[in-house]
C-alpha cells in the first residue's frame, strides 16, 4: 500500500527531525519539510501531502496565517497544529483558519500517530490502517521467527481474511492480545506439518505429539510476542500484552472471527504451510 504523505512545517531543524523520526517506522512518510510559510505553500503545491503538521511560530508568518494560505489553495487540506502553547484563544483562531487538530509540544508519538490516522482514515480506510500499523509487524516477526527457529527463509504472504470462520485441521495455538487494540492471534498448521516443524525446530528425528505441541506453543509465543513488542516499540502508550496460549487439537476446528478485522499470514516452508491469523477488535 502507498504510504501516506506528510509535510512538516517547523522552523526548528530539531523539531522537524524529531517528527520525521516519530513517523519513520509507520505508514506515514514525510515527503516535505518546510522552515517557513513561503516554503510551506510552495512545497504543498509540489508534493500534495495528505496531511500537514504545522508549528505556530514561523519566521515569516504564524502557523495560523500559513494554514490560511494553504487552505486557500486546497480547501480540503488537513492541518494539525503542533505548538508549545495550546490555549482556548489559539484553538479558536486555529479552528477558524481551518486547523483540524491541535497537539502540544513535545508531541507524544502515540497521540501524533492516532491523530494523523483519524484525519486520514477516510482516505485510506480502517482495514488498511490496521494492516499497515499492526498486521505488518506480525509479518516481520513471523518471517524472522520462522528463520531463527527452523533456519529456513519463508516469504510471508499477508491477506485480509473476511471469512466468518477459521477452519483448522491439526493444531491451533490461540494467544489473546490485551491493551489497545485488543484482539487475538492464532498460530496454526496441520498435524503433519506440526510434527515436522517441531522436529526441525528441536533438531531431532522423532518426537512425541506432546513434545510437538509444546514446541508449537513456544513458537507461537515467540512469534506473537515479538510482533507485539515491535508494535509497542512504535506506539509507546499502547501497552499491548499477550495472554498465555490456549491450544486446540482436532479436525475441522472452527474458530469464529466476530467483530474483528482479521488478517491471514501464511509461510510456506519445505514441509508444509504455517499460518498466523490475527484479528483486532473493531471500534478501537
Amino acid at each position: 500500500m502507498e504510504k501516506v504523505k506528510v509535510m512538516v512545517v517547523d522552523d526548528s531543524k530539531i523539531s522537524r527531525a524529531m517528527l520525521s523520526g516519530h513517523l519513520a517506522k509507520t505508514n506515514f512518510e514525510v515527503v516535505a519539510q518546510a522552515k517557513d510559510a513561503a516554503e510551506a505553500v510552495q512545497l504543498y503545491q509540489e508534493t500534495n501531502p495528505a496531511i500537514v503538521t504545522m508549528d505556530m511560530n514561523l519566521p515569516d508568518a504564524d502557523g495560523i496565517e500559513c494554514t490560511r494560505r494553504i487552505r486557500s489553495i486546497d480547501s480540503d487540506a488537513k492541518i494539525v497544529m503542533i505548538s508549545a502553547m495550546k490555549d482556548v484563544a489559539l484553538v479558536a483562531r486555529g479552528r477558524a483558519a481551518g486547523v483540524s487538530a491541535f497537539l502540544q509540544k513535545p508531541v507524544n508519538t502515540n497521540d501524533l500517530i492516532d491523530t494523523l490516522m483519524i484525519l486520514c482514515q477516510n482516505k485510506i480506510g480502517r482495514v488498511a490502517l490496521m494492516r499497515e500499523s499492526y498486521a505488518k509487524a506480525f509479518v516481520h516477526a513471523f518471517q524472522q521467527g520462522i528463520f531463527s527457529m527452523i533456519g529456513e527463509h519463508c516469504d510471508v504472504e499477508l491477506e485480509v481474511d473476511e471469512s466468518r470462520f477459521l477452519t483448522v485441521q491439526g493444531i491451533a495455538v490461540i494467544i489473546g492480545l490485551t491493551g489497545s487494540p485488543a484482539g487475538r492471534a492464532i498460530f496454526y498448521m496441520d498435524s503433519d506439518t506440526a510434527m515436522k516443524f517441531a522436529a526441525q525446530m528441536l533438531g531431532v528425528e522423532e518426537l512425541t505429539e506432546d513434545e510437538a505441541s509444546e514446541t508449537i506453543e513456544e513458537a507461537a509465543n515467540i512469534i506473537i510476542g515479538r510482533s507485539v513488542s515491535s508494535i509497542n516499540d512504535i506506539f509507546k502508550d499502547k501497552e499491548m500484552r499477550i495472554t498465555p496460549p490456549g491450544t486446540i487439537f482436532g479436525d475441522g476446528i472452527k474458530i469464529a472471527s466476530l467483530k474483528l478485522t482479521t488478517f491471514k499470514l501464511s509461510a510456506k516452508a519445505k514441509f508444509g504451510t504455517i499460518y498466523v491469523n490475527v484479528g483486532f477488535a473493531e471500534g478501537e
Binding site: 470462520f165 492480545l177 484482539g183 491450544t247 486446540i248 487439537f249 475441522g252 469464529a256
Partner: peptide
C-alpha cells in the same frame, strides 16, 4: 483479550 469462540465437538484444548 477478545473472546475466541470455537464451534465443534471433536477437539480437545489445553
Amino acid at each position: 483479550s477478545t473472546p475466541s469462540l470455537t464451534v465443534g465437538k471433536n477437539f480437545t484444548f489445553k
